[in-house]
């Protein structure tokens, strides 16, 4: 059996991101393995530990993606394949290149993040499945491997459904699928010796992007600091607070 996780390297949510001439400037930002992809890496390592076989990480991205790939290898994945391309490339074009790698790797199961933290896209998993003509199950919260098929729980807005799907298939992750492990220091040292095969996107016949980013801006969060006077009529103040939390803050 072979299990693949498609991963991406993205800025750490704790980093402060700057824009420079209408473009995000990642200089100085900490770049990490996308946390939604961590579930994917954890899942393929667990599948390998439980059933044997090979856990492979595949990525499309700039050269520096290798760092995130080493993290996945330090968690316990066996080897990596990195399709290199600098700059923004839309998910459908990425999927075209990744599909060629996957067709050759011929895995039984593919996992990837339910959402890509950098471009906030949810398209990569389904687009890869589409390009390969494989079924796609999004927002997976539970996964059970069978013989030639798998059973998966797929999150819905107001509940969940359990599906049985013929393999090979692509699954996208959702929080709750598993508890990703930390890489380990021995793992980091071993990862150094694990193979990462690099292929330029152009070698796979992929160049350019169907979508181009023209301008980016950062949302400014403004604190409203609305204070309701509760000293005179506490009941009315409470009602006002609930109303604001419901209508303005939209947290209730």
């Amino acid at each position: 059996m072979k299990y693949v996780a498609i991963i991406r390297q993205v800025p750490d949510g704790e980093s402060k991101i700057k824009t420079d001439g209408g473009r995000v400037n990642l200089e100085g930002a900490t770049l990490i393995l996308d946390q939604m992809d961590e579930y994917a890496v954890e899942e393929i390592i667990r599948l390998k530990e439980a059933n044997g076989g090979e856990a492979v990480v595949v990525a499309f991205g700039p050269e520096r993606t290798e760092e995130a790939m080493r993290t996945a290898l330090a968690m316990g994945a066996d080897r990596g394949v990195l399709v290199t391309a600098e700059g923004y490339v839309d998910p459908v074009t990425q999927a075209g290149a990744l599909a060629k790698v996957l067709a050759e790797e011929a895995p039984d199961v593919v996992f990837t993040g339910g959402q890509q933290a950098d471009w906030d896209s949810q398209a990569l998993g389904p687009a890869v499945a589409e390009a390969l003509g494989w079924p796609s199950i999004t927002w997976t919260t539970a996964f059970e491997l069978g013989d030639g098929h798998a059973k998966a729980t797929h999150d819905l807005d107001e509940g969940a459904e359990v599906v049985r799907v013929v393999l090979p298939a692509v699954f996208t992750t959702q929080q709750g699928l598993n508890e990703p492990r930390y890489p380990t220091l021995p793992g980091i040292m071993k990862a150094k010796k694990k193979e990462i095969k690099k292929i330029a996107a152009a070698e796979l016949g992929v160049s350019g992007s169907k979508v181009e980013i023209v301008e980016q801006e950062i949302m400014e969060l403004e604190r409203k600091q609305k204070i309701i006077d509760g000293t005179k009529d506490p009941a009315a103040a409470a009602a006002e607070l609930v109303k604001l939390l419901h209508e303005e803050a939209k947290v209730l």
Binding site: R70, Y182, P183, L185
Partner: peptide, 10 residues
Amino acid sequence: TDEQKQLQQL
């Protein structure tokens, strides 16, 4: 080294 950077990140 790359491993030391990964160690630091971990």
